[in-house]
C-alpha cells in the first residue's frame, strides 16, 4: 500500500522551544488516520510543515509523492485543509469564502456543496464577522469536503461544533472513507475511535504510538466484572490481572488484553453467572501514555 503522507525524524524549533523532536508519521492512501495528542504536542506544527507553511529544521516529509516545501502549490491542488481556528474575512459571506477556497484549490463539487450546506444548516449569505466560532468552522469544512481533492487535512475540525453537528461531520467523513485520504488531528477520543482506521499518538513532538485501533488495544487492558457460581479461583495470582476486587461471588478486575484468555479460563472454572467486559477505550490508552503528565492527585 502506498503512503499519502510519510514523515520521519521531523524536527522544528521555535527559538528555544523544540516543537517537533524527531516525529514520524505514515498515513496510507485511502485511510482515515487519527492524529492524537494533548494541546501543544505538535499536531498543528506537523500539519503546517506538511502544508509547506513552515520549514522543517531536519527530517524528511513526503506528501502525495512530493516535497511539501518545494512543490507546495502543485501539491495543494490535490488537498484541502481545515485549520483549527478558522478566521474569515469580515466582509466576505460564507458562501463567497467556500467558492473562493474551492476555486483556489482547483474545483468544487456543486452538488456536494449544496448537500453539505443543507446538512450543516449553514446560511451562506452571512458576512464573515457575524458567524460564531462553530459556524466559521462549518464554512471551512464545507469548503474542504466539497472540494475535488484526494487528501483532506483536518486540524481539530470539530472544535466549536455542537454534538448534533459533530454527528453530521462524522457522517460526512465516513462517506469519504476509501475515496480519499483523511488526516484528522484531534484530542477528542470518541471522534477518533468512531472515525479512524489507524491512529498515531504524539507527545512532546515525538510519536509514541502508531497503528490500527486493534493494534493499540493490545497495549491496553479490558475491564471485566462477573458474578460467579463459586468462590473465585486463582485469579489473584494470574499474570496480567490488575486491580482485582472480590465481594463474595462478584469479581471486578482489569486484565492486559493479551492475557484475557487465561483470565477467562479462571472465571469459567468457578462457573460464570453473568459477565460484562468493556473493551479498552482510547481514553485509557491516552491516559496511560500521558499519566505522568497528569497532575498528581493528593488527598
Amino acid at each position: 500500500m502506498t503512503a499519502a503522507i510519510s514523515v520521519s525524524g521531523l524536527v522544528k524549533t521555535f527559538g528555544p522551544t523544540r516543537a517537533l523532536d524527531g516525529l514520524d508519521l505514515t498515513v496510507r492512501e485511502g485511510e482515515v488516520h487519527g492524529f492524537l495528542g494533548p494541546n501543544g504536542a505538535g499536531k498543528s506544527t506537523t500539519i503546517r510543515v506538511l502544508l509547506g507553511l513552515l520549514r522543517a529544521d531536519a527530517g524528511t516529509a513526503i506528501l502525495l509523492g512530493g516535497d511539501p516545501w518545494r512543490d507546495a502549490a502543485a501539491l495543494h491542488r490535490r488537498l484541502a485543509y481545515v485549520p483549527g481556528d478558522v478566521s474569515l474575512w469580515p466582509n466576505l459571506t460564507g458562501g463567497e469564502v467556500i467558492d473562493l477556497l474551492g476555486r483556489l484549490r482547483g474545483g468544487l463539487n456543486e452538488k456536494r456543496r449544496k448537500v453539505l450546506l443543507d446538512r450543516f444548516e449553514l446560511d451562506p449569505r452571512k458576512k464573515g464577522r457575524t458567524y460564531s466560532k462553530g459556524n466559521r468552522q462549518k464554512v471551512a469544512l464545507v469548503a474542504a469536503l466539497a472540494s475535488d481533492v484526494e487528501l483532506l487535512i483536518l486540524d481539530e475540525p470539530t472544535s466549536g461544533l455542537d454534538p448534533l453537528m459533530e454527528a453530521v461531520f462524522q457522517e460526512a467523513v465516513n462517506e469519504e472513507r476509501g475515496r480519499r485520504t483523511v488526516l484528522l488531528s484531534s484530542h477528542i477520543l470518541a471522534e477518533v475511535e468512531a472515525l479512524c482506521d489507524r491512529v498515531s499518538i504524539i507527545r512532546n513532538g515525538r510519536t509514541v504510538e502508531s497503528g490500527t485501533l486493534a493494534d493499540l488495544r493490545h497495549l491496553t487492558r479490558t475491564s471485566v466484572s462477573a458474578e460467579l457460581a463459586g468462590a473465585p479461583n486463582g485469579l489473584a495470582s494470574l499474570a496480567g490481572v490488575h486491580d482485582l476486587v472480590v465481594e463474595g461471588q462478584r469479581v471486578k478486575f482489569e486484565v492486559d488484553t493479551d492475557h484475557l484468555d487465561g483470565a477467562l479460563r479462571a472465571l469459567v472454572s468457578s462457573g460464570v453467572r453473568t459477565l460484562t467486559s468493556q473493551p479498552p477505550t482510547l481514553e485509557e490508552l491516552f491516559l496511560r501514555h500521558y499519566e505522568d503528565e497528569l497532575p498528581k492527585v493528593t488527598s
Partner: peptide
C-alpha cells in the same frame, strides 16, 4: 448588517480576485 450573496462572483476566484 445586511445579508450578502450566497455565491461568489466569477471575479472572486484567484489570489488577485
Amino acid at each position: 448588517t445586511r445579508l450578502g450573496p450566497a455565491r461568489a462572483p466569477a471575479s472572486l476566484g484567484s489570489a488577485f480576485g
